[in-house]
Structures are given as C-alpha cells and as structure tokens.
Amino acid sequence: MIDVKDLTYSQAVGELEGILRKMQSDDCDIDSLAAMTRRAAELLAECRSRLTATDEELRAILATVNPQQQQ
C-alpha cells in the first residue's frame, strides 16, 4: 500500500471513493472492514491537512502575501 504522503490529492480522494464503494457494495466483512476504515482515516487526515491549515500556519502564509510587505 502506497504511503498517503506520496499520493496526489486526486489519487487520495480517488482511493477514498473506492474504499467507500467497496464498503457499500461488499457484504460487510469485519476483518477487511477494520483495514479499510484504518486506511480511509489515514487518507482523510492527509487530504484534510492538505486542504486546511492551523491558525499559526495561516498567519505565516499571510505574512508572505501581505500587499504592504510586497512593496
């Protein structure tokens, strides 16, 4: 299984959608369910962290794009 860090966002979301489809379609096998849920959680956390930032991170980013500081 590829490390989530090495996936593009689209690949990660694609894998998530695949997992969800599999969980929805298969007659729920509790052994594979645990593995699928763990992987899904990992992918979700990675996608979220790429989409969103903490307040501190945002402040740091904002400091680099402040129009006053550009001048």
């Binding site: 959608e17 997992i19 969800l20 969980m23 729920c28």
Partner: peptide, 17 residues
Amino acid sequence: GHLEHLRDIANGVLRIT
C-alpha cells in the same frame, strides 16, 4: 466543496463501519 466531499466520505465510512 472539497472539504464537503471529504466529510461525506468520512460520514459514509463511519456509517457503514
């Protein structure tokens, strides 16, 4: 929209689990 999509997937996984 992307966040919403992630939330939908998370909810789906959670519900099925």
